[in-house]
Design a protein around this nucleic acid. Sequence first.
DNA 1: ATTATTGCAAACGCTTTGCACTCCC
DNA 2: GGGAGTGCAAAGCGTTTGCAATAAT
Lengths: 151, 151
Amino acid sequence: MNTEKAIQEFNKFLKQGKYRITPERFDVLTAALNFDVHFGADELYIKMKSEKLSISRATVYNTLELLTQCGLLCKRNFGENKTRYESNFDRKNHDHLICSNCGSIIEFTNPKIQKIVSEISAQNGFAITGYSLNIYGYCLDNPSCGKNKSF
Amino acid sequence: MNTEKAIQEFNKFLKQGKYRITPERFDVLTAALNFDVHFGADELYIKMKSEKLSISRATVYNTLELLTQCGLLCKRNFGENKTRYESNFDRKNHDHLICSNCGSIIEFTNPKIQKIVSEISAQNGFAITGYSLNIYGYCLDNPSCGKNKSF
DNA sequence: ATTATTGCAAACGCTTTGCACTCCC
DNA sequence: GGGAGTGCAAAGCGTTTGCAATAAT
């Protein structure tokens, strides 16, 4: 993963917002971009600790918030009572299919969704900043999920 | 709210599933249907306690799960790291606009959504059980939310 | 009588907080 | 040097769990 561009972008964001430039903030960014597709904040903290990086839980949580504001990451919620983060960097807009049996998450893009969501926001006098579409069910390609089940 | 029909439905569900008929379960159902549109499990427990009902936290949580399986309630998540429940009883399918400033939740129905979601599921070999579309932003009718902001 | 269900309290996982120390500007 | 940022531990919140007591079948 080419993190150079992301680092520059974050740097710019921090300067513009009069936030300080600290090594920890860039450590979190780099670790986040190289971690799982959908990671939790605590998981990232533990991963960084296991790699002997000097970082604290508070800093990880704070920095993930900044990276979200900056637009490099976005928050997701898959019905688990915890926030997951996902990279927005060099990726297309997409949504998720979530298997209720094996927990696997399939990403998809559909241009119609964006259009309808904009229409709905306009109709309701709403200034949209983002949206999230989760589809729950069972993946049929995995025998233990879709097989022998009726819906 | 006419809870009679809901009680009958739950009764039937319990019998079919070989679950026992207990007064607590119907207390939770009644309280749930008469509470907020989007309530949390703990909020319901506290409300019931404040009304001097004899109920335990575990029973509230367990029963809400049963009511979800039964189809009388459904789970929602508005990005708060907690589960909210919503009545499915005598209500149309709908989705939500969530104001990131005042937290207000606007419901809307859009027939196109359902159709596209079905298409997407089919395309990805997925047996859909449900979906959730949340639109985040700022409500423009409330001056303190939409006014003086640019997006 | 059997055993699912209840109630309680303690434990859990993720997140936020308070405060002293650090180091960027 | 001032104050934003960090690290640590403790507290917070919603939720789940273990187990003894209770009550539906």
